[in-house]
Design a protein around this nucleic acid. Structure first.
Length: 515
RNA sequence: GCUCCUAUCGUCUAGUCUGGCCUAGGACGCUGGAUUUUCAUUCCAGUAACUCGGGUUCAAAUCCCGAUGGGAGCGCCA
């Protein structure tokens, strides 16, 4: 998109999108993708992305979950322009930004009450005094009769006097919206024309009381009040949409444009990804050692792919194989709602692993050090200096940050190993001993300052060529790593330094002498 | 059960709108090979799909109808 295009769309009706999580659980992986698509869409249209907290369910909402959601978005690099903010310089976690606040529904109760009153006085909503038991019994009988469970509309006919009396008596009540039995059509930006029949739905409860609004109602008020232009959300909300449109009409509001995203499905079993599958929250991935850029790159491709001709970014032709490796900037440039998939997609952890391994390899040593230390992925006693020495040895073998500890353990402490491991499968113990001793002598003569790859490698390789590569390199590698599988010997030697290298060689020599 | 959504390799997908250039392309995975003392990396090659049945058409992955499969929703949750 050119700058000119950007100016034009800015002048047009302002694009405003929102992400509206409910703090009743840790942030779901699907929530990150929804937020990502929202932000990508907003960014490329010069719009605004809002984060609103939907905490109307008092019993289930907690401050801790809200905190988790904020932290998770922050960690993932998902940054909203407006709404509830994560902790930043000077500002505490959960502070708000923007002119359309407050951005927590609990702080908007008066607003909802106002519109509730409006609906009530216009007779578009009414008090319902049916008890839960009554409702449950009716639902059961309807179901057993093979009917669709639906509210009868019993309390619709009460007079104002009846209502005032019941209210005065302190009878339990809820507020229902009179759903007009008509067909509601809408254009979904991803699915096209969709039609629902509201006649199939009974009158829905929109509030438990004047101060306890429910989701379907609050969401309509907020999207209107916050001037949301596009609602981009998961497919599970598709069936709510006709009710929300009807509500908006009754309130005299226009409706935003809708785009319903395909669901992320469980890789193993059936159905959408749920807590039972494990690995559903952002927190879990962070703690398992995944990089935010890997998670985001993986997630953006669940349900969307760039167009083939878009493999050219900013005039630069990308190699075919790396077409799927996308930076955030490239995503912003390439993303398009009408290329979003309609069908649900399974979550493929192997592909996530591929992205993670890729992004770990891209990291500079110093950045990897901080990832490891800050994420608590290594022994706290290991110094940053030695971490920096160990990283090049194992970086390309890591799939997650959590792999580091085990992969690099040998560097910090020589593992216990049997003398027999020192012997190459095509050789014998005597040769191993002789060659090792030869290497030991060679290394000992070397001054500390030139214990580098440049000076070491030619010397070691000369010996290796003389006495047989496997015969020399295998025992040497095992001696310094204590492992059958490890990085190349010269690299370990250099990282370890002369003193530690010689100590380890001596240990190996002793093992062979005893054997 | 009812309503709605949906359907290309094992998985994510390109191609479908604007039918022919599709002997269906890419990525992940898997298999094999090259490099390598080992493991890993890297490189190269191979593997594998248009759900089915009708139609429309000179021509269908692409358009239409039906079936089947998959998913979601049916709360005083969001």
């Amino acid at each position: 998109m050119t700058n000119k295009d950007m100016m034009i769309s800015k002048k047009d009706k302002k694009i405003r999108v929102r992400m509206a999580p409910s703090p009743t659980g840790s942030l779901h992986i699907g929530g990150v993708r929804t937020a990502l698509y929202n932000i990508l869409f907003a960014k490329q249209h010069g719009g605004t992305a809002v984060l609103r907290i939907e905490d109307t369910d008092d019993a289930r909402s907690t401050k801790e979950f809200e905190q988790d959601i904020l932290n998770s978005f922050h960690w993932a690099g998902i940054v909203f322009d407006e709404g509830v903010m994560p902790a930043t310089a000077g500002k505490p976690d959960g502070s708000e930004k923007g002119e359309f606040g407050p951005y927590r529904q609990k702080a908007r109760l008066e607003l909802y009450a106002k519109y509730l009153q409006q609906l009530l006085s216009e007779h578009k909503a009414y008090y319902c005094f049916c008890t839960k038991e009554e409702l449950e019994a009716r639902r059961q009988s309807q179901e057993s009769a093979g009917q669709v469970p639906k509210y009868s509309g019993k309390c619709r006919s009460y007079t104002e006097l009846d209502i005032a009396k019941s209210l005065a008596e302190g009878k339990e009540s809820v507020i229902r919206f009179k759903v007009v039995p008509e067909k509601i059509g809408m254009t979904d930006l991803i699915r096209g024309e969709v039609e629902f029949d509201n006649a199939l739905s009974g009158d829905i409860v929109i509030a438990k009381s004047m101060s306890e609004p429910l989701y379907n109602f609050a969401v309509v008020i907020d999207d209107h009040e916050m001037q949301i232009s596009h609602v981009i959300r998961g497919e599970e909300h598709l069936a709510n949409t006709p009710k929300q449109i009807a509500l908006a009409q009754a309130l005299g509001f226009g409706s935003p444009q809708y785009a319903h995203l395909p669901l992320i499905l469980s890789a193993t079993g059936k159905g959408k990804m749920s807590k039972r599958d494990g690995g559903t929250t952002v927190r879990e991935y962070r703690e398992a050692g995944y990089l935010p850029e890997a998670l985001i790159n993986f997630l953006v491709l669940i349900g969307w792919h760039p167009a083939p001709e878009q493999s050219t970014v900013r005039g630069e032709v990308r190699p075919v194989g790396s077409r799927e490796i996308l930076s955030f900037e490239e995503m912003v440039e390439l993303f398009s709602l009408d290329r979003v998939q309609k069908g649900g997609a399974k979550f493929d952890k192997q592909k996530l692993d591929f992205f993670n391994a890729h992004y770990i390899k891209q990291l500079s040593v110093s950045r990897l050090v901080s990832c490891l230390v800050e994420g608590g992925f290594c022994d706290p006693s290991w110094s940053k200096e030695s971490l920096a020495l160990a990283i090049p040895l194992v970086q390309e073998r890591m799939v997650t940050l959590a792999d580091f500890q085990e992969l690099s353990g040998f560097f910090f402490e020589l593992p216990e190993y049997a003398a027999s491991v020192l012997v190459w499968k095509k050789s014998n113990a005597a040769a191993a001993k002789t060659n090792l001793q030869y290497c030991f002598d060679l290394l000992q003569e070397l001054p500390d300052q030139i214990f580098t790859k440049e000076s070491l490698e030619p010397k070691i390789m000369k010996v290796a060529e003389q006495f047989g590569k496997g015969d020399v390199l295998w025992p040497l590698r095992v001696a310094v790593s204590g492992k059958e599988n490890s990085p190349p010997p010269v690299e370990i030697l250099v990282a370890l330094g002369k003193h530690e290298s010689l100590r380890r060689l001596k240990i190996a020599l002793q093992k062979l002498a005893v054997a």
